[in-house]
Nucleic acid binder design. Structure first.
Lengths: 236, 236
DNA sequence: CCAAAAGTGTTGCCTCTACACCCATGC
DNA sequence: GCATGGGTGTAGAGGCAACACTTTTGG
């Protein structure tokens, strides 16, 4: 009950999602799946196990800044989307000392994902085929996946996996990869168009073996209204 | 970057909602509104201002347990519903030292709400007519209100404001108070019945000036599937 | 009987889904 | 021409809002 500092360690961790082909050396165009990078622990507890990237919060940075910093330090990633997930603080979640983790979840584009410096201690894993992770990180990833899938259905976060311009087929394949089921191209098109979330450009993609698809851009005016009043915090 | 303890104070706070008549001494049956109890700060910073109930986390209790304990200590309330809201950790949210607050939000029944020991330092406030609160607590309440209203539309949390048995009119008045708009009794009945969330009992309420309404009970089998995989944590 | 709230029926609108069909390009 | 994915049209099912209507009580 000290008024100046606590005996509880405060950390941030981040679940970063990217879309990658499920079979990297196999077929020419396999359906993409959800992957995430993990880092190997180089100290006890859980030495050698894979864990979410993260670290301690420095006293003069916000929680979100801490998430971005530790993410860059461990994986060199700069996410296009970053949102708080949950604060995990059960008493026994770390074997050696009491630890409270503020967990964020993030999305990165495939080209950004390539910048991850792979090595002995950083690797990509398919989100639905993880080993036993350190601490309660399996539970955390499950929750983050649930949030990703839930939010993909009612919100417009799919563009965070893509570049500034994209075809409707690309956007649809993002949804299909996350939701793990095929979507009707015709209905998907109408839903996206009527939502006002995307804006057609006057450019098309040539070079395919078929009719050239139109390129779209995200409509930044119609911003997602699904974070509630917390978006106001950015302006203050 | 110490590995044992941080210079960051860790606290929990809770936004507790209850339904109360908006005009307490006025008309015979005014439409109820959303109220919350606040405590007056008895030390700096923000001495004298109203603030959310809360306190420090003890090293051997979970975050949720800390929320329940501090809530009981300051207001004697034991909520029927308690869920984590958000972790607030901006650098400048407390003027004297760095503080990270894990905020919960809770619902209590009106009869429970009466147990609050009112006095100089604890008072109920209408949620849409608050004074300037300590720290960033106005923002926090706004966010909690948004979550309450959003969740009321897709989830079944309204019963947390009621006792074990209730009429459809009572359940509807809870929705109307939270959503601040009238609902069609006929359509509301069908939505609730078809959702399977409520079970009719064989009891009715007599004594009114009209046809006696049937009493309903909540169906605990169909539990809310809207918290995701985190509900599994309770069993572990 | 009358007032008032409980409870039921019905209609029309809107959205989503499934699927048929046309369009534009490379080969 | 033909294969392929881009893009449009459309009929049926289901959900929801609005509102008319019947039922059951107290006075």
């Amino acid at each position: 009950m000290s008024a100046t500092a606590s005996d509880i360690a405060l950390a941030v961790s981040t679940v970063i999602f990217a879309l990658r082909p499920d079979d990297q050396g196999g077929d020419e165009s396999p359906a993409p799946g959800v992957w995430l990078p993990l880092v190997r622990r180089i100290r006890e507890p859980h030495l050698g196990r894979w864990a979410l990237p993260g670290g301690s919060v420095v006293v003069d940075e916000s929680l979100e800044a801490a998430a971005r910093r530790t993410l860059a330090e461990t994986t060199q990633l700069e996410p296009t989307y970053l949102e708080q997930l949950y604060a995990f603080g059960d008493v026994d979640r770390s074997p050696d000392r009491r630890m409270v983790s503020i967990v964020y979840w993030a999305l990165v584009r495939p080209d950004e994902a390539e910048k991850v410096s792979l090595g002995e201690n950083v690797r990509w894993f398919a989100a639905d085929d993880l080993p036993e992770l350190a601490f309660d990180h399996n539970l955390i990833v499950d929750y983050a996946l649930w949030r990703l899938r839930t939010k993909m259905e009612y919100s417009r976060i799919a563009h965070a996996f893509l570049g500034p311009m994209f075809t409707l087929a690309e956007l649809r394949s993002v949804h299909e990869a996350v939701l793990q089921r095929p979507l009707d191209p015709a209905n998907f098109r109408r839903q996206m168009e009527s939502s006002g979330a995307i804006v057609p450009t006057d450019q098309v993609v040539t070079g395919g073996r078929h009719r050239p698809p139109r390129l779209y851009r995200y409509n930044s005016d119609i911003e997602l209204v699904d974070v509630g009043p917390l978006t106001l915090r950015r302006s203050s």
